Amino acid sequence: MDGPIEQKVQMAKEYSRTQRVADQVQKELAQIIQLEMKDPRLGLVTVSAVDVSRDLAFADVYVSFLGVDEQKHIDESVEVLNHAAGFLRSQLARAVKLRFTPQLRFYYDSSLRRGQYLSSLIEQAVAEDNRHGE
């Protein structure tokens, strides 16, 4: 019977394995999307993060698109990637040596847009303070 220490060690091993797989999937997918995807609806895609399930069956891939702010275009781009998930998975299987390649699910990562918005709010507040201080 495993004690609490053995369970923590097993969890740490499991986490590091899933994290290593996620890092490798992120790196390889970024290259595959850039080099292999020929869809004109996709612009410059950034793979910002990948979360792999503990059983390695699924990989949630978070992407952002350079220079794209319109929600309709973002949704269409994510749909294109989800539609191409089977192709991308087969390309990934060639690049990453795993017994089982996770199923890919793509999501838009809005953190970059949120960060830019918060930066602009801060700049506006500083400019307003400077005007009041004069």
Rank of each mutant, 00 (worst) to 15 (best):
M1K: 13
M1G: 15
P4M: 04
P4T: 07
P4C: 03
V9R: 15
M11I: 03
A12E: 13
K13I: 04
R20D: 00
V21G: 05
V21R: 02
K27L: 09
K27H: 05
E28M: 04
E28L: 02
A30V: 01
Q31M: 12
Q31C: 14
Q31D: 10
I32S: 06
L35H: 14
K38S: 11
D39N: 00
D39R: 01
P40E: 08
L42P: 04
G43S: 05
G43Q: 03
V45N: 03
T46F: 02
V47I: 13
D51S: 14
V52A: 07
R54T: 07
D60H: 10
V63R: 15
L66W: 06
V68L: 07
Q71W: 04
K72L: 03
D75V: 00
V80R: 01
N82S: 14
H83I: 05
G86R: 10
F87N: 11
R89N: 14
R89I: 06
V96C: 01
K97Q: 12
T101V: 01
T101Y: 00
P102W: 01
R105H: 09
R105E: 08
R113D: 09
Q116N: 14
Y117H: 14
S119D: 08
L121M: 07
I122A: 14
A125D: 06
A125V: 03
A127N: 04
E128N: 10
G133T: 08
